[in-house]
Amino acid sequence: MKNKNRFSRRLFIKSSTVAGIGLGVYGNAFSLSLKVASDYSQGKRVGIIGLDTSHSIAFTKVLNTHKEDSQYLGYHVVAAYPYGSKDIKSSMDRIPGYTEEIQKLGVDIVNSIGDLLQKVDVVLLETNDGKIHLEQAMEVFKARKRMFIDKPMTASLSDAKAIFEASQKFKIPVFSSSSLRYITGIEKIDKSTVIGASTFSPAELEPSHPDLFWYGIHGVETLFTVMGTGCESVSRVSTKDTDVVTGIWEDGRIGTFRGTRTGIHDYGGTVFTKTENVVLGPYAGYEPLLLEIVKYFETGIVPVQPEETLEILAFMEAADISKKQGGKSVSIKELMDKK
């Protein structure tokens, strides 16, 4: 409860109306969205924004293959808007091939987000470029459609705050998550017993994004999934091939993330609990995340609270600052309180 109250005070201080929003008020807002569910279209047509990532193809294959599977509640992809990064070459180069591939799966290609929103009930915002997520998300909010935002949620903490503010304004709950939140082994952990954790994932860099936002997010998301919110400070040791980021939680627990750019491309970690040490892995694929997404599409209940997502982004942003300052400890509170 201490953690929740602490971060409730920190979130969204841009205006007096928004300043008080925290876990409790978010819960009320999302309950409100459920209360007016009769006004919300319960169709099963999914639209994709962004064909510059392999996630778009993978998600479509799972959903459309399992259209008759009761677990996926009938949600299936019917239309996609290809764009997409405009200045990240590795992403832009994928668009033609992924566009052709998704058409073979029976998905219509449209010329704008506006056109997409006319054809679908819910949206997967898959654009690989977090810099344009706020702009794209605003179109979806204005159309009052539920939306999942894939990693990286944004390319800055400030943009993520703006997205959650818009979520409140339009009364449309939204969430973002890496599929590594559901890595094998994590479901066995009683999180109330966790005394520390060490996770790892690849952490390739993209100059247009803060270092860990681009790929390190996967291992950081795993870390917060088991540790929960309440990280107070972050320090980072960085070399050409490896990052080690250490977070100190307000109750004295320590969590570390190791990001790799050489060696085996793998994900995992160790969770230290009061009774045992639990090894995480292997990667469980996209299906566990997609099951949570379709539940959210159906109910409007988000599986990841906004303050946890914001703290994850603050952790990664603080890691960048620490790197620039030669590994000095950086306060997350200062970042969360920054306008």
Score class of each variant (00 low, 15 high):
Lys188Leu: 13
Val271Asn: 05
Ser85Tyr: 00
Val226Glu: 07
Ser329Cys: 07
Lys35Leu: 15
Arg10Gln: 14
Gly114His: 09
Phe141Pro: 05
Tyr296Ala: 15
Gly300Phe: 12
Thr99Cys: 10
Asn3Tyr: 04
Glu100His: 10
Ser38Gly: 15
Lys328Leu: 09
Phe175Glu: 06
Tyr75Lys: 01
Leu32Gln: 14
Glu139Ile: 02
Ser329Gly: 05
Leu51Arg: 01
Ile102Gln: 10
Pro288His: 14
Val294Pro: 01
Gly230Lys: 02
Leu212Cys: 05
Pro306Cys: 14
Arg236Asn: 15
Val18Lys: 08
Arg258Asn: 11
Glu232Gly: 09
Ser329Tyr: 05
Phe59Met: 11
Gln325Tyr: 08
Thr222Trp: 02
Val107Ile: 04
Ala162Cys: 05
Val62Asp: 09
Lys67Gly: 02
Glu317Trp: 00
Phe297Arg: 01
Asp87Ile: 09
Ile113Thr: 14
Ser233Phe: 03
Ile113Leu: 08
Thr184Asp: 11
Cys231Arg: 00
Gln136Asn: 10
Ser33Ala: 11
Val78Cys: 11
Val304Ala: 05
Lys169His: 15
Val304Pro: 03
Gly43Met: 07
Thr275Gly: 12
Ala58Pro: 01
Gln168Trp: 01
Lys14Phe: 12
Ile293Ala: 03
Ala137Arg: 03
Val226Ile: 15
Asp121Ile: 04
Ala143Val: 08
Asp150Ile: 03
Leu73Gln: 10
Ile48Thr: 06
Ser56Gly: 14
Leu205Cys: 00
Tyr26Met: 13
